[in-house]
């Protein structure tokens, strides 16, 4: 029996969407863990947010000054700024200029 093209297409989509992406997520998650543990062992901490998230977090804090959780958000932001100032190697893809431009809120 020859399978119709539409059957093969659905089978391939399911395999890529589940086994492909799931396998990628597993490998990436385990790789991240190894990297984090290396960083923790070497410098006791690492940057908690990516440049993109830090930029969004700053924008959110500035646009929600009266939000009940703004203090938590500010603490998290400042903590990451402090960490970036202390560490030599980052977990996320930060460049020196961006780190130098960061200021506590």
């Amino acid at each position: 029996m020859v399978l119709p093209a539409s059957t093969i297409a659905v089978l391939l989509i399911a395999m890529v969407a589940l086994w492909g992406v799931g396998g990628w997520a597993l490998v990436r998650s385990l790789g991240d863990e190894e990297r984090k543990l290396e960083l923790l062992e070497r410098q006791e901490t690492f940057d908690s947010y990516s440049p993109r998230v830090m930029s969004e977090l700053r924008a959110w804090i500035e646009s929600h000054p009266d939000h009940p959780r703004v203090d938590d958000a500010t603490t998290a932001y400042n903590d990451c700024v402090d960490r970036l100032g202390r560490i030599e190697e980052t977990f996320y893809d930060w460049d020196e200029t961006t780190i130098d431009d960061l200021e506590r809120l």
Binding site: K36, Y49, R69, D72
Partner: peptide, 22 residues
Amino acid sequence: SDPGLGLEWVRLVELNRSTDLY
């Protein structure tokens, strides 16, 4: 914690912390 898009602070502060998936 607010009636608008209240989860935004959770997404930014908690969900995107220490993760490689934005």
